[in-house]
Computed example of a mutant assay.
Amino acid sequence: MQEILSQINRIPIRKNYVENLPYNPKLKPLLHGKRKAGILSEVIFWKQVRAKIFHEIDFDRQRIIGNYIVDFYVKKLGLVIEIDGWSHDVKKDYDEVRQKFLESLGLKIFRATDFDVKNNLGSVMKDLEDFIVENYAAETTPS
């Protein structure tokens, strides 16, 4: 039996907790600085998802997974949310290696651009809903 986390547009969303994620404690001192930096697009997104206000789903901000710090993480879905700013244009190889590593752990990655979060937030949130439904909708048994 699938454990249901939430519903999006009446579609039940199943939990997909990924256990035993690697954690590099040496990155912990960087977390406070990244949070305090207050990158505008991350702050805007955080205001949309903090305190379970997005479909009662709990998001973590600046989460260490392996040797990486991801922008946002939904533990009960095994979902990483990355907001890509201009620096990602010059880090394509790094981002590709990072994404393959995260996917190898069984995680899914949703990406939004810094521009879209600042200028098309409604569209980003709808795309996130669609991504969650597409990847985590509970299987229904025919009646």
Rank of each mutant, 00 (worst) to 15 (best):
Q2P: 09
Q2E: 15
E3T: 10
L5D: 10
S6V: 06
I8T: 10
I8Y: 02
R10Q: 13
I13L: 09
I13Q: 08
R14V: 08
R14L: 09
R14Q: 15
V18F: 00
V18Q: 03
V18G: 01
V18L: 01
L21M: 06
P22M: 09
Y23M: 04
Y23R: 06
N24S: 09
N24F: 03
P25I: 04
K26P: 01
L27V: 05
P29S: 12
L31R: 03
L31A: 06
H32V: 12
H32Q: 12
G33W: 00
R35F: 06
R35V: 11
K36T: 13
K36Y: 01
A37K: 10
A37H: 06
G38H: 03
L40V: 07
S41N: 02
E42L: 07
E42C: 11
V43P: 00
V43D: 05
V43H: 02
I44H: 07
F45K: 04
F45Y: 10
Q48P: 00
V49H: 10
A51Q: 05
A51Y: 03
I53T: 14
I53Y: 00
F54P: 03
H55Y: 08
D58H: 13
D60M: 06
R61S: 14
R63V: 12
I65D: 07
I65R: 03
G66K: 01
G66A: 10
N67S: 15
N67M: 03
N67E: 13
N67K: 08
Y68W: 02
V70G: 09
K75I: 03
K75E: 12
G78E: 08
V80R: 05
I81C: 13
E82F: 07
I83T: 12
I83Q: 07
I83F: 04
D84K: 02
W86C: 10
S87A: 14
S87F: 03
H88W: 07
D89V: 00
V90S: 14
V90T: 09
V90H: 07
K91D: 14
K91I: 04
Y94C: 02
D95V: 04
D95N: 09
E96P: 00
V97C: 08
V97L: 12
R98Y: 03
Q99P: 00
Q99A: 14
K100V: 06
K100W: 01
L102T: 12
E103Q: 13
S104T: 08
L107F: 06
L107A: 09
K108W: 01
K108I: 06
F110S: 11
F110D: 12
A112L: 01
A112N: 06
T113S: 14
D114T: 11
F115H: 05
K118M: 08
N119Q: 10
L121E: 11
G122Y: 00
M125T: 14
M125R: 12
K126Q: 15
L128F: 12
L128G: 14
L128D: 11
L128W: 05
D130C: 06
D130P: 00
F131C: 10
I132C: 07
V133S: 10
E134V: 01
E139C: 04
E139V: 08
E139Q: 09
T140Q: 14
P142D: 15
P142L: 15
P142T: 15
P142V: 15
P142W: 05
S143E: 15
